[in-house]
Design a protein around this nucleic acid. Sequence first.
DNA 1: CGATGTGAACGTATTCACAGCG
DNA 2: CGCTGTGAATACGTTCACATCG
Lengths: 257, 257
Amino acid sequence: MATGRTHRPATRSRGIPEATVARLPLYLRALTGLSERSVPTVSSEELAAAAGVNSAKLRKDFSYLGSYGTRGVGYDVEYLVYQISRELGLTQDWPVVIVGIGNLGAALANYGGFASRGFRVAALIDADPAMAGKPVAGIPVQHSDDLEKIISENGVSIGVIATPAGAAQPVCDRLVAAGVTSILNFAPTVLSVPEGVDVRKVDLSIELQILAFHEQRKAGEDAAAAEAADVVAPVVRGGAAVDRKGPDGDMPAVMPA
Amino acid sequence: MATGRTHRPATRSRGIPEATVARLPLYLRALTGLSERSVPTVSSEELAAAAGVNSAKLRKDFSYLGSYGTRGVGYDVEYLVYQISRELGLTQDWPVVIVGIGNLGAALANYGGFASRGFRVAALIDADPAMAGKPVAGIPVQHSDDLEKIISENGVSIGVIATPAGAAQPVCDRLVAAGVTSILNFAPTVLSVPEGVDVRKVDLSIELQILAFHEQRKAGEDAAAAEAADVVAPVVRGGAAVDRKGPDGDMPAVMPA
DNA sequence: CGATGTGAACGTATTCACAGCG
DNA sequence: CGCTGTGAATACGTTCACATCG
């Protein structure tokens, strides 16, 4: 960023922090729930609880968008829904293509929340000729030969990749070449894309592994039965605690995977 | 991150930063690829490229695990695979249950990467009696009446929720009561769980909304055709820039969602 | 009065740059 | 000499606490 010492908070800078952006959909969902129940206003405290964050964070997040609350009262639900929707770009409809209509792709196509909020499944694409023409979630699957044509004719800028890992990068390259600039990747691969293209990944096994890490740690700490004490915890797992390299756990010749 | 209302201090676990833990699976995947190709050693530079991070970050991450490299040479692939696997708790097999065998649940059950690395689908559970007994991915679906029994008999501590949003919290409560302490939630809801239970969420529509935000921004900046200059960018979208509340964009009576 | 909005303090994560070692 | 490992510097994110204003 500009190393600017913007003296005045006058014109609020562009640049909503990424962490805030990632929470806006959460707030929006909570607000939509309130809206459906015809709740007119919420306090930061209530809304924060509904979204699973703390209220200071929520207020700070909203402060980046502007002053949309009323002191002593709270936030107008409908107004906030609109402002956040607008900020997220959901006042327009984004056509999306899903590439790779296997189990997962089909599940995504059938996912309801898709069509509801600002997104529309413009096309389903698969490399298997046998799939072509078959309807999934009411939408006929098209063959990947026509990928470029489909992208450009529908003005698609967001693509979802649900192919096997091996196909993901080639598919990604074709999507990008055809004009897609945002990609949601469900394939377990690192995609490389040119500057200016956004990639987000959703990876089941990574999430599980992170859970396993904490799970393992819990099991280790259960032995100590320590609560509230965070200073001790000698970490008994295996042999020595995190030490220098060396023969603590001898390395088996055969890996589990 | 634990999404529950229990604000976990995180300072509790002396040791590896959360951000580092989240990247270990990435490194592990890259290393496994190298291992399969019988590559004996990698430099931080090469491995970082394969994992899609920069090398300084990777070295820092590894430094939390210990000194597993050789200066002037790099890292021994097999050795690192083992160390990371061990750190993530993948040297043991974690039995996992999937609750909610709809489109998504079935896709998850069929997901290969599941069984391969440290995880085993111990059971599939669904509330629909018609599903009971039907095999999905070779595993017979069991009725949710038996949830508690299934959890305890299989020693399950990790649960995957792939139910509709409305069912997620009740299912979560039952899982937790039965002994599950880590939950991967695919339902679009905030789950609240007691202290000590980890929840991670995977949410398609949130990811799409984040992409839409950036996509919208790109479209706005294309007009200015600005490159490298982040100082100017007056932001033309809508009417006035983020200002005080007021009638800038008038709020429509009907929301798109 | 009560809840927002926000500077300031604190904590975490990333990057830099180079000492240290094989 | 090259690459790892790491303190120091920087950037980013969260929390605190209270002035501010409807």
